[in-house]
Each structure stands twice: as C-alpha cells, then as structure tokens.
Write a protein that binds this DNA or RNA. Sequence first.
DNA 1: TTATTATTGAAATCAAGACTCATTAAAGTT
DNA 2: AACTTTAATGAGTCTTGATTTCAATAATAA
Lengths: 142, 142
Amino acid sequence: MKSELQVFQEFILQRGLRRTLERERVLQEIFEIHGHFDVEELYLKLREKGVKVSRASIYRALPLFREAGLIREADFSDGHWHYEHIYGHSRHSHLKCLGCGEMVEFEEPSPQDLEEHWVKRYRYRIVALEVQGYCPACQQGA
Amino acid sequence: MKSELQVFQEFILQRGLRRTLERERVLQEIFEIHGHFDVEELYLKLREKGVKVSRASIYRALPLFREAGLIREADFSDGHWHYEHIYGHSRHSHLKCLGCGEMVEFEEPSPQDLEEHWVKRYRYRIVALEVQGYCPACQQGA
DNA sequence: TTATTATTGAAATCAAGACTCATTAAAGTT
DNA sequence: AACTTTAATGAGTCTTGATTTCAATAATAA
C-alpha cells in the first residue's frame, strides 16, 4: 500500500502543482494524529515541534488533502471544521444527536447490520443519515 | 397530528420560556418554505411580507426549534448553516460527495435497501455515513 | 396594577477562514 | 549553473456568519 505521502505526491504531480516541504510536514503531522483534528490544533502541534508553517498554508493545504482522498471534513459541531484522515483507515461513521450534539463513532461490519446497530444498540431515533463518499465522476478523476 | 406551532408552544411551556409573536412568525415562515433554507433567506422572506424580525432573533430562535425537534441543521456546504424542517416530513438522507460537494437527496424505504441504493443506484464510493437523530436521553426529554 | 425578568433590536464584537501582496523558491529551459 | 517563470509562502488585512451587549419592551406572575 502506498504511503499517504506517495499518494499526495502523485496527486500533486497530476495536478501540475509543486512539492513543498510545508505541505509535506503538515500531511505528516496529520497522519501522526489519532482521531479528529482542527486547524488550530494542527498549527500548535507543528509549532511545538519547531516546524514553521503559517495558518494560511494549512488552510490552503487541507482542501488539497481532501481532494486527494486523504482526509475528510468530519463535522462542524463547534463553529469550525474538524477533520480526520481516511486514507488507510477502516470506514467508520458517526451518530450525531441533534439535541445535545453528542457524537458516537462506530464501525459497522456490513450495511445489513446498520438497522441493528442504530436502533437496537444505540437506541437512537434516526432522523437522517449523512452519507459521504465519492460520486462516480470523482472516482474516475481520483 | 399536532401542528408545528402546537409542538413549539408545548416546548416553550415546558422550558418555562415565553411565547412571542416574533418566534411564531419565524416558525410559520419556516414551515411555508419547501426544502432547505438559511438565515438570510428567512430574514429576507419575512421582510418581504412586512414582518419585522431581527436577524438576532432568528439566530436565537433556530436552536430552540432544533431542540424542539422541528428543524435540523442540514449542511454547512457553503460557509454557513442550512436548515430544513423535519417535523411532519418523511425521513430522507443525503449523499454528499467529498470531492465536488454535490449532494443527492434520497429517501430509503428500509435500512436493508441502503447498500443497494448507495452502491448500485448512485455508484458512490462510500466514505462515511452521518446518522443524525436523537439519543436515548434526548428522546425522553422531548 | 405592579413587579419581575425573558425577549427584542441595533450595534458592537468575535472568530474562522479567505484574500492581498511582496518575497521566496520549485521546476523547467537554455 | 544561471536564468526564467510562476506556484507557494507568510504576515497581515478583510470578510462575514454568528454571538454578545445593553437599553428598551413586553409577557407572565403576583
């Protein structure tokens, strides 16, 4: 399996962009983080390690990582985006409570088990599913 | 079936809040709108009709409607929240493309059909599901 | 009717994120 | 290796959705 850096470099090449140390350091940091992260966290973690990357560059890099299929926007629960890396990770989903905002993260072994999980296991009253993925057009581009 | 206004008034009573004309006009307007809406749309529609309600009051009313189970935050696709009324509506879901942001709205007859819909019908590569609903605690409160 | 206090509107404030622009540097060309 | 082109960066500014402030208003209880 290709490393996330390899995937990104191929993406950069294909797009006619340039390789920069800044973006690679940001990407590296993202894949060292377990779970969700936001821009500020990322910025501070990099600073801590003495890596000098501006917030602006992070904001500019994230859409690229997203378009390369490496990360995704996970939620916008508290007024700003939270992300998580998806490359190389097992598919998992979120159950978000519209009342209190609580979010349960879960993995479902098969779509057939979904109903069981939601209703029997979590006792959630389901209002809507947000299914995120790639449409046919974007699968070909990627 | 109770009207949305009745539901809201019961919610208001239960919370020890006060009934105000402003909130009721906003709620009425929301339920006259088909599909999604955002604060600005709502504000302008009310103004058009000569209903004087400030943006601040709208921003303050929406969380109440959400907590009362009348509306939900649908997506944050273009930098601000979009909402939709859920009370009295059939459950429907969204397929959101992480690449281009395209959103397909669909209703699924049963959870068992989900996989079929996603994979065979929409040819989406699924990355994550966002399941929104009410957790057990909030179901009792509501 | 009076007292209490939630709610309102207008304006000020906050913050995430986008934009500006001069500088730097990656990659291609000679 | 020097030169050219132009993408990318960083510091700061700007935008704007949303929250907060505060004096005035009005809904409810006493």
